[in-house]
Design a protein around this nucleic acid. Structure first.
Lengths: 335, 335
DNA sequence: TTCGGTTCGCGAAACGTTTCGTTTTTTGTT
DNA sequence: AACAAAAAACGAAACGTTTCGCGAACCGAA
């Protein structure tokens, strides 16, 4: 059905190997080049990637494995990775493991069985061994968003610690001392970092932290809602709150509005991740914006580099900066 | 490096073709079967899908093409499709086309170049020709969520019309007559259907529709926010509002809370898609819930059927029912 | 025991490429 | 015009499977 190299050879009167050479960027007589291109046009010839892969042991396929496909932050990154890789002719197999370590392993195995040329992984914590076995298999691997300790591996991170530091610092500068934080699950790397930033800035300013103002949620809308209310029910409620992911920011906003908490008069507020929210909510929210596009692009580029056998600079740790959008949700208080 | 059929043959003393037969479910002597399985174990043998594909013209890969990877409704469906297909050994290449018709065509072409065995597509409107060309190529295709007219094709839909009908009917039953709707873009199939349901139930009850209460948004948070406020600024504001997707529901909720509109006293409210929201918002929201899991599973199953050359019942139109969760956001009024 | 019918196993060709060593053509120099 | 060197084209083998037609082995019935 579909045209093969043979058809092109026949049409042009050249040999199969010459066509192959052309296809792979080799030199060919000008006249022949034109002829070949003409043939490719008329037959609408496409290289059969499977035949090629059989010879070369490359599939032109990369696997992307993320914790969940139901989280916009993750899928936006995937979207960007995919765009870049597609330009280079790679297809992207996207899998999620629904935050389940067993599934993470299974899906990773699946990707190996499919002989992907490279893998982008957003790993679970406590699964160092898994990552180690991947590395042992020599398949290029780029981690994103979450760091695994004691393992040499290319990784693209966000500087979550300083993201928090800067956000909370802005609150401190404005005189706030009782600052609540709605942090993420304790075993997740990004959540740990975001909390560390909060703690460090307090230390740097020589201020004391009230443990009652630190709340751990599960990164879902519902816990944002619940924890914000818990914070406000404190006998000495915070004058400012910093929420550390998108879903919990939505939850918090809903709680705030429901309870007629006035921003920024009753409470100064800094949220996370989504510019839309910042625009909509009145008064405009201040938020920490992650460089989603850059994360995806960087991960894709590092992976491409490794897949082309370029090992320079290994392991490459890219730490991207967040942006702090200051809007109208912050107020000065006397401290 | 990796073990091949040859290694298994050597180990067992059988011929390559016998091993192949076993691998493809053929009959083999009990003793040999055990021997082969033992060999496969010890070598950790995996069929080379590329070699197999070269012979059989199958890639064991399906393409899923959706408008955007940044929409939870879409990606949840993808997640479910992927789970089912993976069980059957298929990998899923997920692409999005960022709501851009040009890109839709390009990515579809890309999937063809990758010789996927099947495609799940959530198409743009006004692109009937694209779908027709896909069908002409004989690659199994399942459409989801959006119908294309004048084209015979398997499709998995949600009964959006009756979803709206039932939702709005509940409002009418409770005495509401001025019911606002925040509908989607006019050229999107699901949006049209959801609006039709609204219109039909008014007709069936012999009520008149006030065009000022019909607002068209773009399915984004921001337009939900804006349009809800527009509705309420009407000189005769609605007593109830029905919002037709997730993002706009969030936007509306934020607007409602910001403006201290009391639900259900000032306004009865029915939203769309997300159970989380229903739980969080006080009072609990009534919402239309789409059967996301079923959509994905059904699409995957129909596609599997077609990929195994089973053409029974073509074209299969599956129309799934939504669920209407009635909670505390509805109030009776005298009409 | 023999024979027909099944079941199982085998060998070889084929799928569409790439690659490598060799041959042919082109180019440049004298 | 002749020759060497460089460039281009060629032919064949190989990648790891499936498939198909045959032959071998086995079974039960007569």
């Amino acid at each position: 059905m579909a045209a093969t190299i043979k058809d092109i050879a026949k049409y042009t009167g050249l040999s199969i190997s010459t066509i192959s050479k052309y296809l792979n960027g080799g030199n060919v007589l000008e006249a022949n080049r034109k002829l070949i291109e003409e043939a490719i046009q008329t037959f609408d010839f496409k290289v059969n990637e499977m035949a090629r892969g059989l010879r070369t042991n490359r599939t032109m396929t990369v696997g992307v494995l993320i914790p969940s496909l139901e989280n916009i932050f993750f899928t936006s990154i995937v979207s960007n990775i995919e765009s870049i890789l597609l330009k280079e002719g790679y297809s992207t197999i996207v899998c999620d493991y629904k935050e389940d370590p067993q599934l993470e392993e299974k899906k990773l195995q699946f990707l190996f069985d499919k002989m992907v040329d490279g893998i982008v992984l957003m790993p679970l914590p406590d699964n160092d061994n898994l990552v180690k076995t991947v590395i042992a298999r020599k398949t290029p691997l780029v981690l994103i968003d979450r760091l695994i300790h004691n393992v040499d591996c290319d990784v693209v991170l966000v500087d979550n610690l300083n993201a928090s530091y800067n956000a909370v610092e802005q609150l401190i500068i404005r005189g706030h001392r009782r600052i609540g934080i709605i942090a993420g699950p304790q075993n997740i790397y990004t959540a740990q970092e975001r909390l560390k930033g909060y703690i460090r800035v307090f230390e740097d300013y020589g201020l004391k932290i009230d443990p009652a103002l630190i709340k751990h949620g599960d990164y879902q809308i519902e816990s944002g809602h619940k924890l914000l209310l818990e914070l406000m029910e404190n006998e000495k409620p915070p004058t400012a709150v910093y929420v550390t992911n998108y879903e919990m920011t939505i939850g918090s906003i809903i709680a705030i509005n429901e309870n007629n908490i006035r921003i920024p008069d009753d409470l100064s507020f800094i949220g996370f991740d989504n510019q839309d929210l910042a625009r909509i909510v009145k008064p405009a929210l201040s938020i920490v914006v992650q460089p989603v596009q850059q994360i995806g692009e960087t991960a894709a580029q590092v992976l491409l580099k490794r897949m082309s056998k370029d090992q320079r600079g290994f392991p490459l740790v890219t730490r991207l900066k967040t942006e702090l959008l200051i809007r109208d949700s912050l107020k000065k208080v006397e401290s």
